[in-house]
Simulated scan of single mutants.
Amino acid sequence: MALGNSKSEEIEENLCEFSKEIYGECGILITSEPVESVREYIEKATVKDYARMKSIVTETVTIPAGIVSYGPEKGGQPISRTWENFFKKVELPIVIENNAICLQEDYTICKIGDSLSENQAHLLQKLGYKLALFKLTVTHCYDKTKKETFIF
Protein backbone atom coordinates (compact mmCIF):
# COMPACT_ATOMS: atom_id res chain seq x y z
CA MET A 1 0.00 0.00 0.00
CA ALA A 2 1.24 3.51 -0.81
CA LEU A 3 0.94 4.61 2.84
CA GLY A 4 3.19 1.80 4.02
CA ASN A 5 2.36 -1.53 5.58
CA SER A 6 5.18 -1.49 8.14
CA LYS A 7 7.34 1.02 10.02
CA SER A 8 10.12 0.57 7.46
CA GLU A 9 7.77 1.31 4.53
CA GLU A 10 5.65 4.14 5.94
CA ILE A 11 5.96 7.59 4.40
CA GLU A 12 4.97 9.37 7.65
CA GLU A 13 5.47 8.30 11.25
CA ASN A 14 2.74 5.89 12.47
CA LEU A 15 0.98 5.99 9.09
CA CYS A 16 1.29 2.22 8.73
CA GLU A 17 -1.19 1.93 11.64
CA PHE A 18 -3.68 3.92 9.57
CA SER A 19 -3.11 1.78 6.47
CA LYS A 20 -4.09 -1.35 8.46
CA GLU A 21 -7.58 0.16 8.92
CA ILE A 22 -8.18 0.69 5.20
CA TYR A 23 -10.18 -2.12 3.59
CA GLY A 24 -13.33 -2.70 1.54
CA GLU A 25 -15.05 0.25 -0.06
CA CYS A 26 -13.38 3.35 1.33
CA GLY A 27 -11.62 6.50 0.36
CA ILE A 28 -8.86 8.68 1.73
CA LEU A 29 -9.23 12.44 2.08
CA ILE A 30 -6.02 14.41 2.44
CA THR A 31 -6.47 17.97 3.61
CA SER A 32 -4.87 20.64 5.76
CA GLU A 33 -8.28 21.68 7.12
CA PRO A 34 -8.95 21.14 10.83
CA VAL A 35 -10.46 17.72 11.62
CA GLU A 36 -13.63 19.17 13.15
CA SER A 37 -14.44 21.35 10.14
CA VAL A 38 -13.93 18.38 7.79
CA ARG A 39 -16.13 16.18 9.99
CA GLU A 40 -18.90 18.81 10.08
CA TYR A 41 -18.75 19.28 6.32
CA ILE A 42 -18.93 15.55 5.58
CA GLU A 43 -21.77 14.99 8.06
CA LYS A 44 -23.84 17.65 6.26
CA ALA A 45 -22.90 16.54 2.74
CA THR A 46 -25.58 14.26 1.30
CA VAL A 47 -26.72 13.64 -2.25
CA LYS A 48 -30.09 12.25 -3.29
CA ASP A 49 -29.70 9.02 -5.23
CA TYR A 50 -31.81 6.26 -6.72
CA ALA A 51 -32.80 3.52 -4.29
CA ARG A 52 -31.41 0.10 -5.12
CA MET A 53 -33.08 -3.30 -5.03
CA LYS A 54 -33.72 -4.44 -1.42
CA SER A 55 -33.53 -0.85 -0.11
CA ILE A 56 -36.18 -0.03 2.48
CA VAL A 57 -38.45 2.70 1.14
CA THR A 58 -38.92 5.89 3.16
CA GLU A 59 -41.91 7.24 1.24
CA THR A 60 -44.89 6.05 -0.76
CA VAL A 61 -44.74 6.76 -4.50
CA THR A 62 -48.00 6.67 -6.45
CA ILE A 63 -48.31 7.59 -10.12
CA PRO A 64 -51.70 9.20 -10.78
CA ALA A 65 -54.01 7.94 -13.52
CA GLY A 66 -53.61 9.73 -16.83
CA ILE A 67 -50.55 10.62 -18.90
CA VAL A 68 -47.42 9.09 -17.33
CA SER A 69 -44.83 11.75 -16.56
CA TYR A 70 -41.34 11.81 -15.10
CA GLY A 71 -41.09 12.51 -11.38
CA PRO A 72 -39.99 15.79 -9.80
CA GLU A 73 -36.28 14.99 -10.23
CA LYS A 74 -36.73 14.98 -14.02
CA GLY A 75 -39.11 17.92 -14.36
CA GLY A 76 -42.48 16.21 -14.71
CA GLN A 77 -42.34 15.92 -18.51
CA PRO A 78 -44.52 13.26 -20.19
CA ILE A 79 -42.83 9.90 -20.80
CA SER A 80 -41.92 9.01 -24.39
CA ARG A 81 -43.97 6.33 -26.06
CA THR A 82 -40.76 4.33 -26.51
CA TRP A 83 -41.25 3.25 -22.86
CA GLU A 84 -44.42 1.31 -23.70
CA ASN A 85 -42.77 -2.14 -23.72
CA PHE A 86 -40.96 -1.49 -20.45
CA PHE A 87 -44.18 -0.46 -18.71
CA LYS A 88 -45.96 -3.53 -20.03
CA LYS A 89 -43.07 -5.72 -18.84
CA VAL A 90 -43.40 -4.37 -15.27
CA GLU A 91 -47.17 -4.82 -15.57
CA LEU A 92 -48.36 -1.22 -15.32
CA PRO A 93 -52.01 -0.86 -16.42
CA ILE A 94 -51.31 1.38 -19.43
CA VAL A 95 -53.05 2.31 -22.65
CA ILE A 96 -51.92 4.52 -25.52
CA GLU A 97 -54.09 7.59 -26.04
CA ASN A 98 -53.23 10.37 -28.51
CA ASN A 99 -49.73 8.89 -28.85
CA ALA A 100 -49.11 9.18 -25.10
CA ILE A 101 -48.68 6.50 -22.44
CA CYS A 102 -51.59 6.72 -19.99
CA LEU A 103 -52.29 4.88 -16.77
CA GLN A 104 -55.82 3.53 -16.53
CA GLU A 105 -55.80 3.95 -12.74
CA ASP A 106 -53.53 5.27 -9.99
CA TYR A 107 -50.52 2.97 -9.56
CA THR A 108 -48.51 2.71 -6.35
CA ILE A 109 -44.91 1.78 -7.13
CA CYS A 110 -43.91 1.37 -3.49
CA LYS A 111 -45.07 2.05 0.06
CA ILE A 112 -43.17 3.20 3.13
CA GLY A 113 -41.33 0.25 4.63
CA ASP A 114 -41.28 -1.86 1.43
CA SER A 115 -38.09 -3.66 0.47
CA LEU A 116 -37.73 -2.74 -3.19
CA SER A 117 -37.94 -5.43 -5.83
CA GLU A 118 -35.79 -5.18 -8.94
CA ASN A 119 -38.77 -3.93 -10.99
CA GLN A 120 -39.74 -1.32 -8.39
CA ALA A 121 -36.17 0.03 -8.18
CA HIS A 122 -35.88 0.10 -11.97
CA LEU A 123 -39.24 1.86 -12.37
CA LEU A 124 -38.38 4.50 -9.75
CA GLN A 125 -35.07 5.16 -11.51
CA LYS A 126 -36.63 5.39 -14.98
CA LEU A 127 -39.25 7.84 -13.73
CA GLY A 128 -36.71 9.90 -11.81
CA TYR A 129 -37.68 9.28 -8.19
CA LYS A 130 -34.63 9.54 -5.95
CA LEU A 131 -35.55 8.00 -2.60
CA ALA A 132 -32.09 7.25 -1.19
CA LEU A 133 -29.39 9.46 0.29
CA PHE A 134 -25.71 8.99 -0.48
CA LYS A 135 -23.62 9.96 2.50
CA LEU A 136 -19.99 9.55 3.49
CA THR A 137 -19.03 8.19 6.88
CA VAL A 138 -15.70 9.17 8.42
CA THR A 139 -14.29 6.33 10.48
CA HIS A 140 -10.58 7.13 10.94
CA CYS A 141 -8.27 10.10 10.92
CA TYR A 142 -4.52 10.53 10.79
CA ASP A 143 -3.26 13.73 12.39
CA LYS A 144 0.00 14.60 10.65
CA THR A 145 0.95 17.23 13.23
CA LYS A 146 0.65 14.73 16.12
CA LYS A 147 1.74 11.73 14.01
CA GLU A 148 -1.14 9.62 15.29
CA THR A 149 -4.23 7.81 14.05
CA PHE A 150 -7.56 7.98 15.80
CA ILE A 151 -11.01 6.51 15.27
CA PHE A 152 -14.15 8.65 15.23
Results as ranks from 00 to 15, higher is better:
Met1Phe: 08
Ile11Arg: 07
Glu118Cys: 04
Asn5Lys: 08
Pro34Lys: 11
Ser69Asp: 09
Glu97Tyr: 02
Gly128Pro: 02
Glu43Ile: 06
Lys44His: 01
Val57Trp: 00
Thr46Glu: 07
Val90Pro: 05
Ser8Val: 09
Ser117Thr: 13
Lys20Asn: 15
Cys102Arg: 08
Leu3Asn: 01
Leu3Lys: 01
Gln125Thr: 11
Ile67Lys: 12
Met53Gln: 00
Ile11Leu: 07
Ile42Gly: 00
Val47Thr: 09
Met53Phe: 00
Glu40Tyr: 01
Thr149Ile: 08
Glu148His: 10
Gly128Ser: 03
Thr149Lys: 14
Asp143Met: 08
Leu29Trp: 09
Glu12Thr: 10
Lys130Met: 08
Gly76Ile: 09
Lys135Ala: 10
Pro93Asn: 05
Ser80His: 11
His140Arg: 09
Thr82Gly: 11
Val68Ser: 03
Gly75Lys: 14
Thr145Lys: 13
Asp143Arg: 12
Met1Cys: 14
Thr58Ala: 04
Phe152Cys: 06
Arg52Phe: 04
Leu29Ile: 11
Lys88Trp: 07
Glu40Asn: 03
Gly27Pro: 00
Thr139Gly: 13
His122Ile: 02
Leu103Ile: 01
Lys147Asp: 14
Lys7Tyr: 12
Asn98His: 02
Asn5Arg: 13
Asn85Met: 12
Lys89Asp: 14
Pro64Lys: 12
Thr149Gln: 10
Pro78Phe: 06
Phe18Met: 15
Lys20Phe: 11
Ser19Thr: 15
Ser8Thr: 06
Ile63Val: 15
Pro93Ala: 04
Val57Thr: 04
Phe150Gln: 12
Val68Cys: 03
Pro93Gln: 03
Gly71Val: 01
Glu9Ser: 10
